[in-house]
Design a protein around this nucleic acid. Structure first.
Lengths: 211, 211
DNA sequence: CCCCCATGTGAGAGTTGTTAACTTTCGCCG
DNA sequence: CGGCGAAAGTTAACAACTCTCACATGGGGG
């Protein structure tokens, strides 16, 4: 790729290092890359620029990551952890088995997408050399697990019940689709006619209170 | 980027040119890029490699596209046309206003995603310099229009009716989400427990046969 | 206290994006 | 029919980027 990747080649939110040994480079690189992905799209980042932002030479990142793809994977892993935590928190904020708990999980998902559309798309668009990174797959399953558990609680069934899996999948498609559409079409917002919470409650009700 | 972008640096499905003047370079570049995106991810393509595949010098593409982003946009535009056509065809294959017509539109969508996951993701992940390319937005609206029309027919209301918009959006979220999940988790397929058609019919019914 | 190795630096090879100046070919007009 | 201008290709060049290798550094465990 040619041309400078960013507008102000310096200046960043990640505070640079202190001495020769950085002490926290790996995390700072991930933060810097997340920022870049957010502002310039998934292929609008460069290892070099991330290094610059962290205040290290352009070769330093390769002590922590095999190649640029591995950095992306790092960003995704971190993001999925955050997503998982947010979903758990959403569920925990309401009585177990309530529809509210389910809607809250969905809302956490949508909020996650809206506050970091670039990273969100990265998370679900990663298909380079890591189609089946076991670590990422595990984290993905962990997230789905939250939905599954909430649905199981609501239906008073085991999480492994096929009926639970079916409805959890339905719910997730819905939330996932809404998240994507909502960040793709920032124009014509409020296509739902209502706010997210009401919308998600309606969906949860429709999917869970049926034969 | 470093390193060759593809495995066999030559050999391609797009047959190279004939004489000095290629005659069809623009289209062949788009085809080549679509192939690359499909096999190496959205940022796994390079203008140079696309040119190589089309049998021209690496500067030739710039006679047809301003920069690499414009090539991507070309790929997306072509893909959206195909998607739109497939959706229309799906709707046309069933009686107007039937649930089947709606399910068929959804199935076209899902099939499109499945047969070209890379391009599909590209279509809905394009956020570089063209967040609001009027041409692409128009094509997007065209696609949503098919859903909207099918829903309107089914409910016997005007496509502009807010109720139609609301349900069309719901339906689209669902289909969109299912499409994404289906290509993301190729593993644990058939999470729905049924085939796509049955699934989509159930969803259409649930969303359209309600207060 | 000292040495070791994880973590940094610098230079360099190879690739890419993009532009500029050129050349070739096609079709059209006098 | 000749030539000419625009469209479409080529080569050359530059800056940036990825990634490697040999070397430097310094903090923590023996």
């Amino acid at each position: 790729m040619a041309g400078p990747v960013v507008d102000p080649p310096a200046a960043s939110a990640v505070t640079p290092k202190a001495g020769y040994h950085h002490g926290d480079l790996r995390a700072q690189l991930i933060a810097a890359v997340a920022e870049l992905v957010e502002s310039h799209g998934p292929d609008g980042f460069s290892v070099a620029e991330a290094a610059r932002r962290a205040g290290v030479s352009s070769a330093a990142p390769y002590k922590h990551f095999k190649d640029r793809h591995e950095i992306l994977r790092g960003v995704v892993a971190e993001a999925m952890d955050r997503l998982h935590a947010a979903m758990e928190a959403g569920a925990a904020a309401h009585p177990r088995g309530s529809l509210e708990a389910i809607a809250a999980v969905g809302l956490a998902y949508v909020d996650f997408a809206r506050t970091g559309p670039g990273v969100f798309r990265l998370v679900f668009g990663l298909t380079e050399g890591h189609e089946d990174d076991p670590d990422l797959m595990a984290k993905g399953d962990q997230c789905f697990g939250v939905v599954q558990q909430a649905v199981a609680d609501c239906l008073r069934l085991s999480p492994a019940d096929p009926e639970v899996e079916r409805r959890a999948y339905m719910l997730w498609s819905f939330v996932h689709g809404h998240s994507f559409l909502t960040i793709d079409m920032k124009h014509k917002v409020a296509s739902t006619g209502t706010d997210d919470w009401t919308y998600l409650m309606a969906v949860a009700e429709a999917i869970l209170r049926r034969p």
